[in-house]
Design a protein around this nucleic acid. Structure first.
Lengths: 188, 188
DNA sequence: GGCCCCATGTAATGGGTTACATGATTGC
DNA sequence: GCAATCATGTAACCCATTACATGGGGCC
């Protein structure tokens, strides 16, 4: 369960489940996500395990918030996770399993599939570039003079940009190959 | 459940659960995986649903094999999956969640973490390049004259190579930045 | 009045991993 | 004799998604 570790990482400052969901939507979007229905039980489990503590807080608008912060024990667990070395899980790229079998449908549909895919990643790339631009606008030190506490966050953004740009370029190459094959054999 | 669709895709020719696991280890390694304990129940479920049929077959070595092949209904379901458009799931990149929080440990450990990561992906890249070379050696038509039935399989390999190469390059950049910061402030 | 945002949770279900159980054949 | 490969499966558990349930406050 890696969500536990992410939560611990975020709980250096007090946060509610709702706060964390917002962060997932904004900052982690390109490499992690979780639903509120998973976050809330995970937070209370952390507390049962002595890794975090919580208290209620009045909210400006809406019901009371339950904010969690990690304990010293939680901080130790968090560091141990980082020190255990990189978790290189098996990637599961659903759309690639589809591409693998794509010759089962007519050429026109294959082209449409990859055009769809390209559109999706081009949009995602544009979103990430916007995050990048906004960050640069907000912080004078961006990107070369960042302090450690934001440098590693920037690294994750950099990889997102690289990988998604590579994926868009790959879509374009595939589309070219398919178009060329349609020209040669219009009825295949 | 995407495993069902992958299984259907593979069952155009008769295959056993064991055969499929081999394929996962060899061909799908860089974008999908599944355990035998997941594959066997999924295969019998496909049969219960009328999407595949099986029979026993004597094996050269070891116990009898149960080989499955998809039915006409299975083929229709498979094509419907492809026609439903790209499944762009949320990526979950565990090691990026770690990089995000990596400033929590001393600079020397951060460097070790990224060196580890680089090694992992450099190895993975080398494996994929080997697959690429072997394929080229076995098929005269590789890579530009491939027929449709192998072209799309080659596309998946191409993206694997691109993404992993981008990841290795990213590791190198991060490592350079960390080394530079250690030189400037040796005790941070 | 209706919609969106704030805010927290439970229940049912789906999907996946790890551990367990069994047993034959081949090669060293 | 022992390890590796071939071969199939079950059971327990973990993790994640979807659906359900509830309710206040602000804005148009």
């Amino acid at each position: 369960m890696s969500l536990r570790h992410i939560l611990l990482g975020l709980l250096d400052e007090p946060k509610s489940g709702y706060d964390i969901k917002q962060l997932f939507n904004k900052i982690f979007r390109h490499f992690w996500s979780a639903e509120l229905s998973q976050i809330y039980p995970a937070l209370s489990q952390l507390e049962r395990d002595g890794l975090s503590r919580s208290h209620n807080e009045a909210s400006a608008k809406g019901p009371a918030r339950r904010v969690y912060k990690r304990t010293a024990q939680g901080t130790r667990t968090h560091k141990a996770w980082l020190r255990a070395g990189p978790e290189v899980g098996k990637d599961r790229v659903s759309y690639l399993t589809q591409v693998f079998f794509l010759d089962a449908v007519p050429a026109a549909e294959r082209l449409a599939f990859l055009t769809d895919l390209r559109q999706h990643f081009a949009d995602e790339l544009e979103e990430l570039r916007e995050v990048d631009r906004n960050w640069a606008a907000e912080d004078q030190r961006y990107p070369d003079q960042l302090p450690d506490e934001s440098l590693y966050k920037q690294f994750t953004l950099r990889l997102g940009l690289k990988k998604i740009a590579a994926t868009v370029a790959w879509c374009d190459e595939c589309i070219e190959v398919i178009k060329a094959s349609i020209k040669k054999r219009p009825k295949v």
